[in-house]
Nucleic acid binder design. Structure first.
Lengths: 333, 333
DNA sequence: CTACGGTGAATTAACGATACGTCACCTAAG
DNA sequence: CTTAGGTGACGTATCGTTAATTCACCGTAG
């Protein structure tokens, strides 16, 4: 509860000096002895600056918002780490929200839109939010950076198309020909991955299968595999768009008596720790999520400083295949 | 960028009236016509209140902090929902942090400790944080509520001991006698669950096995199973303390050629969506995490209002066994 | 002896929102 | 006719911090 005025009184100086000590301001000078007295007083009274007053005065809060679609999606683990780390480097704090809280008129949106709450917004997969919410967000006076391709504001993204290519190419190299593509929800990223799959298939002179069960999560994977088995020619391999859908693919395969990888090879996009612990352990394309988080924060700080943000697709590191046990070579026909 | 003063000027009233319209203050009255003019002006100028100024004036931010140990732990999914929902009901916003960001001297802690950032703190498993951090937090002038048993400040908790009992009792009823208890990290909750296991074993006249592989996550489960097989008499059933460790138990069982549930029954504590999609699907004790979140928020608001928080263990709903495929009855010996 | 520059600090005006105290005006009761 | 009370609104201090401006003092050069 101690304020700068209390410090000033105890140290026998003015608040200006206290503020100057705190901020290392060169404008207001003081002797070393005075500075020491002030610091002593701050420690004695256990002084903690009032962020609200600072924010008001400086028109800057030191907080950025990070809005994700499903917070409990394990692919965000490293993204979060990257964002927190980069924000900490810049002296910032992160206000985390998820899609649940992003309904139009919700407390979270209202607060985000107010001045003096955050200095900028990092948003992932903005196509998943209400149009109303997005319109409101765009009217926000502070910068917004998308962690996904975006038409109408700055963005950085991982190379989703490349991930689709890598997974498909890997299966092609294992001599698979009947490869299907399963799962993924409606975001741009998910379509990009399918695009990568399509391109590789076509380049190999094969007909890409339609995008099956474009939903999200475990159930979409199970549904997708069942749908795939209805196709004229049963697939020998599957690219799973959303990694958690891979869990569903494995479960459905087990339920249907299909052995993985002997009768069906599975490759997931996005690697999470869980994949290592499934049986069979799932071969997956690791995406640079940590770096995406860092790049997002740094880009946002550029925008906040009034500079343009270069943005674009993160090229370093590239998506990388982590080979485990869920995919194997097809014997020659 | 429009402030109340801008609204006041445009509507031809004083800022006092604008504020009154905004807050529905009865103190400053106005005619319906005036109110309408003010509202019109607010819409025209796209007015958004400045939270920093409000916080400063009111000495209240409308934000509460929620600090969790591992944000990506799926057991938090429903806890988060409960917290967000209850906070929204109270008109509050949630600032989410995880243990990563809770190092002493970190940006997050510093900000949390400052005035004018949050009105209260909800913390889970506070034994997992640095002593330094906890000491700092406790010196925080705003209320802290633990979502876990705590000695030195208010708390609410789920019934961890009961969960251990339920899992163990279930296996005992299936005629299992050699039941081990695996995994769990160092928190109080984890010890309570082991206690529940111990009690049930002793009540059945059996010798409880030592608490194996008291770590966290998938690997702890795998390690625990391997350790269990070193015991003089191999177990026929396992209670898994942390649910994600169940994934590791299943993987190790597969690797060792042990069939689940035919040769080994597995019951997990804490139910998450993933369990339904593993093969075999994992029988687990569902804990009322959503309600824990709600109870935590409501308790915290009580504390913030200066009232005592009843706290204690959440009795309704009770932990509930969700029977799936990973446990089966033991044939009579 | 005076003017001047440098040092070390105090005063004060914002930042935007809120709520207390005040006030002008009008109506109706005494 | 006076006045109490109700209605509708204004002025302003305040929250804690920052930074621009101002100021007092002292040593030294002219």
């Amino acid at each position: 509860m101690a304020t700068q005025r209390d410090i000033a009184r105890t140290a026998g100086v003015s608040v200006a000096v206290v503020s100057a000590v705190l901020n290392g301001t060169t404008h207001t000078r003081m002797s070393e002895a005075t500075r020491a007295r002030v610091i002593q007083a701050m420690e004695n009274l256990d002084y903690q600056p009032n962020q609200a007053a600072r924010s008001l005065r400086l028109n800057r809060t030191g907080m950025i918002a990070l809005i994700l679609h499903k917070l409990d999606n394990p692919v965000y683990t490293h993204l979060l780490r990257g964002v927190y780390a980069a924000a900490a480097e810049r002296g910032g704090t992160v206000l985390l929200g998820d899609a649940e809280t992003m309904r139009s008129g919700s407390q979270f949106v209202t607060r985000l839109l107010s001045h003096g709450t955050v200095d900028g917004i990092l948003i992932r997969d903005d196509r998943l939010y209400d149009d109303d919410v997005m319109a409101e967000l765009r009217s926000h006076p502070k910068p917004i950076l998308s962690l996904d391709y975006a038409q109408d504001h700055p963005w950085v993204s991982i190379d989703d198309c490349r991930a689709g290519e890598i997974a498909t190419r890997f299966l092609l190299n294992l001599r698979h020909r009947r490869i299907v593509f399963i799962g993924g929800a409606t975001g741009h990223a998910f379509r990009q991955r399918y695009l990568g799959y399509q391109q590789e298939m076509q380049q190999a002179g094969l007909e890409p299968a339609p995008h099956l069960a474009t939903g999200f999560g475990e159930q979409a994977g199970a549904d997708g595999l069942r749908q795939a088995l209805q196709l004229p020619a049963a697939p020998t391999a599957v690219v799973v768009n959303n990694i958690m859908s891979a869990v569903g693919v494995l479960a459905a395969a087990r339920d249907l008596g299909i052995a993985v990888p002997d009768q069906l090879s599975v490759v997931g996009i996005h690697d999470v720790g869980l994949m290592e612990h499934l049986r069979p352990a799932v071969t997956a394309v690791r995406m640079p999520m940590y770096e995406l988080g860092r790049a997002g924060v740094h880009g946002l700080y550029e925008l906040m400083a009034g500079r343009p943000c270069a943005g674009g697709i993160i090229a370093n590191p590239e998506p990388e295949l982590v080979v485990r046990d869920s995919a194997t070579a097809l014997a020659d026909a």
